[in-house]
Design a protein around this nucleic acid. Structure first.
Length: 466
DNA sequence: AATGCCGGGGG
DNA sequence: CCCCCGGCATT
């Protein structure tokens, strides 16, 4: 043995890792790429959040635990549009890497006068730039010159935000349906930075008004409660009726005098666009939910488990477990499905050391319920000294494991399985030794190098958890 | 005796 | 943290 070790070790690492952990996930994606992808998705694709989440979750999870994947993209996205404005205030058009800038330049008027005014304007109104720009372009009547000029200037800054989140969509879709979500998200996250500044606030308001379009706008002027559906109209209203001549000065003035009454994501009227609903829920809720709900949900509620009957629906047990637990939490449904799955997988990797099966009860949901439901309990007796948790976790029946193993790619399947039922992830109930297939049995002592590390260390088998 | 793995120890 | 191994329970 001893002599062999060194050699074996080297060899072992390869095979071992492959089956247990790396098998599929070995390929990891680069963070950068992913981020970009996400960005793209955000822009172009409207919803799909569920899918996205799921996918990211799966892959990422393998490498890193957490739902990180999901968050990351979003966070990034948010940042993208958040940051730009800030930096721009100081510097003008640096940030924008946006390709879009080019197009804008075309429509900018060449008037020199404007430039001067604009220069001043820009500094002050930079914060608003994205907002202002978007609207004006469409048709700001009152001050065409400035607006256009401002637009031009701002393009640098605004572009990012536009391209990133609202801008593109607003134009294309007519409704900013998608925009709202990002904007909201932005609102939440960004505040830290610019809370102090009035400008910031304005920006927010403005952004909202533009971005979260479907809302209505109410005039805040003392005795005027006028409600309009478009921010633009509202601005105009304020300017004309309340501000009067001053209007020309600063477009954003109007922002102070009206507020947006938005019906954001939840209510989402269908007509506007299919997209809207997705983004909202996705951005804010799903992340937290996923993290919290998925694991705890299934575990604790164990009692619910799915009746054995479900077998027909899908061959693998995996699917079932997911669905079962999900049902319990009302809200989580969509999320839960995606999130949980990812979760399981995470756990798998660490079966050996890290995993602490959270719950005992889980057992109920195992795909092949018939045999093992009872067994776990009985089995538990075997170990006198085990830790409670461990014992409970272990409850899993050998039969299940075997079946899977037999079927085929043991490693992957197993992993998934174990992961699938978080609760029992790897329980310690050893079924009959006879039935249990462990590395030693499978590979034999001679091929110890092929054992999973746990087995080599005389620990609970990682590769073939009961 | 073979196996599976906990608990503990060394580097 | 990685790696071993003594020792116990089980088969």
């Amino acid at each position: 043995m001893a002599a062999m070790k060194p050699g074996e070790r080297t060899l072992s690492s390869g095979p071992q890792s492959c089956p247990s952990t790396a098998a599929d996930p070995t390929e990891t994606r680069q963070p950068g790429a992913e981020m970009q992808e996400t960005l793209v998705d955000m822009q172009c694709c409207e919803q799909e959040d569920p899918n996205l989440t799921e996918r990211n979750g799966h892959r990422k999870i393998m490498d890193r635990n957490h739902q990180g994947p999901v968050f990351v993209p979003q966070g990034l996205t948010e940042r993208v549009w958040n940051h730009p404005p800030a930096p721009q205030q100081t510097t003008t058009p640096t940030m924008p890497s946006c390709p879009v800038s080019a197009p804008y330049s075309f429509w900018s008027p060449g008037s020199v006068e404007m430039d001067e005014i604009m220069a001043a304007m820009v500094l002050t109104s930079l914060s608003c730039s994205p907002v202002v720009q978007s609207i004006p372009q469409s048709q700001n009547d009152p001050v065409p010159g400035p607006s256009s000029g401002g637009g031009d200037m701002e393009c640098g800054g605004g572009e990012l935000s536009d391209s990133g989140s609202s801008g593109c969509w607003s134009w294309d879709h007519g409704n900013l349906s998608p925009a709202p979500s990002p904007s909201n998200a932005e609102m939440d996250s960004s505040p830290d930075e610019g809370l102090h500044m009035e400008l910031e606030d304005e920006l927010h308001t403005a952004t909202r008004s533009k971005s979260s379009f479907r809302g209505t706008y109410r005039c805040l002027w003392p005795s005027c409660g006028k409600v309009l559906t478009s921010s633009f109209g509202m601005k105009r209203h304020v300017r004309v009726l309340h501000l009067g001549s001053e209007s020309e000065q600063s477009p954003r003035e109007e922002d102070f005098y009206y507020t947006k009454i938005s019906c954001v994501a939840p209510a989402d009227p269908s007509p506007i666009s299919p997209l809207p609903p997705a983004p909202v829920p996705a951005s804010s809720p799903h992340v937290p939910w996923a993290s919290c709900d998925s694991p705890p949900g299934p575990g604790p509620d164990s009692g619910l488990q799915i009746p054995s009957s479900s077998s027909s629906s899908s061959g693998s047990g995996i699917s079932r477990p997911i669905s079962g637990p999900e049902s319990a939490p009302g809200q989580a449904r969509p999320l839960s499905q995606s999130a949980p799955s990812s979760f399981w997988q995470i756990q798998t990797d660490h079966l050996y050391q890290a995993c602490t099966p959270q719950r005992v009860t889980v057992s109920s949901r195992s795909p092949t319920p018939c045999c093992w439901t009872p067994p776990p309990l009985t089995v538990s007796n075997q170990h006198s000294h085990h830790n409670t948790q461990v014992v409970t976790g272990r409850c899993r029946s050998v039969s299940v494991g075997e079946q899977w193993l037999q079927q085929n790619s043991a490693t992957n399947r197993l992993i998934t399985m174990s992961a699938a039922s978080p609760s029992r992830s790897h329980c310690s109930f050893r079924k009959g030794r006879a039935e249990a297939k462990k590395c030693r049995k499978v590979y034999g002592v001679e091929r110890k190098d092929q054992w999973c590390t746990a087995c080599r260390w005389k620990k609970a088998c990682q590769r073939f958890p009961d």
